[in-house]
Design a protein around this nucleic acid. Structure first.
Length: 408
DNA sequence: GTTAGTTCAGTTGAAAGCAATATTATCGGCTAC
DNA sequence: AGCCGATAATATTGCTTTCAACTGAACTAACGA
């Protein structure tokens, strides 16, 4: 009875207040706003580089660098959309194909990338089975019969080339030379600046006929972005000005990642709404940051292979016993026991040592090699996570390895 | 007090094994001449 | 004959293990003043 009544109250109070959001979608990171602050120059430049398509000429190939959340994809998307709109009136065919090469199982090999491209032309090829040559042939025919300009936007191209080598680009540029009725332009996007250096010189020069760099946003720019978006995302007066500043400042610390800034703001607002406080405050941002952090770490761990999780569990267990500065040996000992109890095969210390350093790189634990003189050399392993996260993690992992709790 | 060795407890790099996947090659069946 | 799809054959990966060289400071012992 009691619960029903409070449920009733909950709903009616929800219905009677306007809430914080007016349009939450604006805060999503894949939303394309009309106005992209502090990227006017880049958009201008992009437009200049790509505009030859409007006269049916081939633009230069282009290479774009920039860290995550610096607006690369956003600007490209915006420019190419407009370009497509305008060109549909000119009679010069234009097709822009955007592909994210990082997406596992979609475009992370030569074959899959080609298959993906082909499917953009409305033709499906089997997942597997055909020789790659056939796909090139197929693609060639499709593009040629389609005619006009084709622009390939390859996002996170570094991931692709790292995996499969640079032949693909070579082949694609070569196709271009044979085509009679169509022209291919390649736009590569990468977030590693150093990446182009270890590329075949021929490909490098043809790929980066033009280069652009998207610098990270600074705190002020981030705040502008946030206030721009929040003007449509929120109802008036529901967000403190200080909140935006704080989100911007936090995200600026992490290489000026606009996505992070938006996430912070969105999550903070969600929290505020859920807590029924009529407005978002700095306090909510704090909680949001912790929550994002927590989610990230839990997500990382969840995606780990079993063995790695087990190592993590070993570290966690020791940590909960109050151990500080654990050594590889101690962790390995416990890991060995846990593996045995859970019926997993035990890896060698060599491997566990690597797993530990992987966990370190991912920022889940802190491990650094220290020499302890006469007492050898080892990694000093620590956990620097909040209690909440630790508790949550051990719960998650504990559920996966039921036998592990015998140790507590 | 200095200097030159030792020693520990792993670290790190290279090479190779192995199982799971991915890519290629091959073959029989089917259609179109 | 030529093409298609399926299946066998082969190559590539991604993890791991094995082997072995390397590390760097605490500890020791010898050294020289």
């Amino acid at each position: 009875m009691m619960t029903q009544k409070s449920l009733h109250e909950l709903f009616s109070s929800y219905a009677n207040t306007t809430g914080i959001f007016s349009n939450k979608g604006t805060l999503s990171s894949d939303f394309t706003p009309n106005n992209i602050p502090h990227r006017e120059k880049q958009i201008q430049e992009l437009a200049m580089i790509l505009r030859p398509v409007l006269r049916g000429e081939k633009p230069s190939n282009l290479f774009i660098y920039g860290k995550t959340g610096t607006g690369k994809s956003l600007c490209i998307r915006k420019v190419s959309n407009t370009l497509q709109e305008v060109s549909s009136g000119t009679g010069n065919g234009l097709k822009v194909i955007y592909i994210n090469c990082k997406m596992r199982k979609v475009a992370d090999t030569e074959y899959r990338l080609l298959a993906q491209i082909i499917s953009y032309f409305g033709k499906d090829v089997p997942f597997t089975g055909l020789p790659t040559n056939n796909l090139y042939k197929e693609l060639y025919n499709l593009i040629d019969s389609n005619g006009g300009n084709v622009i390939f936007v390859l996002d996170e191209i570094d991931a692709l080339l790292e995996k499969v080598g640079d032949d693909i680009l070579y082949n694609l540029t070569r196709i271009n030379q044979d085509l009679s009725r169509a022209k291919i332009t390649i736009v590569g996007i990468s977030n590693k600046v150093s990446f182009i250096d270890n590329l075949d010189p021929r490909i490098r020069s043809s790929l980066s006929e033009e280069e652009m760099i998207f610098p990270p946003y600074n705190a002020n720019e981030l705040r502008d972005i946030l206030s721009e978006r929040s003007s449509t995302a929120f109802n008036d007066g529901s967000v403190d000005h200080a909140v935006l500043t704080k989100c911007a400042a936090l995200a600026a610390q992490e290489h000026g990642d606009a996505r992070k800034a938006l996430d912070l703001l969105r999550v903070a607002a969600e929290l505020a709404e859920r807590a029924n406080s009529g407005r978002v405050t700095e306090h909510h941002v704090d909680i949001a940051e912790e929550k994002l952090d927590r989610d990230r770490i839990i997500e990382i761990i969840r995606a780990q292979p079993k063995q790695s999780k087990l190592v993590m569990l070993a570290v966690l267990s020791l940590f909960k016993r109050g151990q500080k500065n654990m050594q590889t040996g101690e962790v390995y000992e416990l890991y060995e026991r846990l593996a045995l109890e859970n019926g997993l095969k035990t890896l060698t210390q060599r491997r566990v040592s690597d797993l530990i350093s992987e966990l370190d790189i991912m920022g889940v634990i802190n491990a650094s090699v220290v020499s302890k003189g006469r007492y050898g050399r080892t990694r000093k392993i620590n956990i620097q996570l909040g209690q909440k996260i630790v508790a949550l993690l051990s719960k998650t992992l504990g559920a996966e390895f039921p036998e592990a709790f015998i140790n507590f």
